Simulated scan of single mutants.
Amino acid sequence: MSNALARLLEIAPAPSQPLDKGWSEVEQTLAVGLPNDYKELIGVYGGSNWDDYLYVLEPDCPNKHYDLLKWAKYQFEDLQELWTFEKKPEELETEGSVVIPWATTDNGECLYWLVLPGVDPNEWTVMVNEARGPRWEHYSVSCTQFLASALTGELQSNILSSSFPLATHEFRRLGPV
């Protein structure tokens, strides 16, 4: 278990039912491996809502609106189209670099993994994109470290809502709609 996941367990006790995903099928669909800390996060919390604001995407999420595989497909297509007339963030100027979404917010901001050629998934870092705008932020941490640090206030984004995190944390696993 990662240190960041241990910190999340202190913030919000784990639901009683751990999840077991077919990761090889998910990774085959995405054509890339996923970070171990994310797999652990999903195994413990599943697709989830944090502080009534941030939604962690889950492959085949019971709430179809937060399915990682669908988000990855549509975000890739949308960003490719967007970057025909808007400048890519400099972190994505490397040939073969892409972003894969792992979380979103109720305001429409999107949190991505920065995937660079030859970089192991366990070394991927986090990119945050504002809703309907060109601003991006880059954080040299894993997704679970980002979530834990954002919830404790150690990490502060200029893009995410100023009312996140809440003083008293709220967590809920995403269920069917």
Rank of each mutant, 00 (worst) to 15 (best):
D37R: 09
G96A: 10
T152N: 04
W102L: 09
E137D: 05
A14D: 06
S157V: 07
S16A: 15
I11G: 00
E170L: 14
L82Q: 12
E40W: 02
D60I: 13
E130V: 09
H138N: 12
G96N: 04
P165I: 07
P134S: 10
S24A: 13
G96L: 03
L9Y: 01
D106C: 12
A167N: 11
Y66P: 03
S140Y: 14
E130D: 05
C143F: 03
P15S: 04
G47M: 10
D106Q: 04
Q75E: 01
A103K: 04
Y112I: 08
N107L: 14
L5S: 00
S161D: 12
L166I: 00
P134R: 13
K21L: 15
G46H: 03
T94K: 15
K73Y: 11
D52N: 10
P18M: 00
L54R: 02
D20W: 11
L41C: 06
P13E: 01
Y45P: 02
Q75T: 09
F85P: 01
V141G: 02
W71M: 07
L160C: 02
V32T: 11
Q17V: 15
G133C: 01
E77V: 06
H138F: 08
Y112N: 02
E170T: 11
K88L: 13
E58R: 12
W71A: 07
S161Y: 01
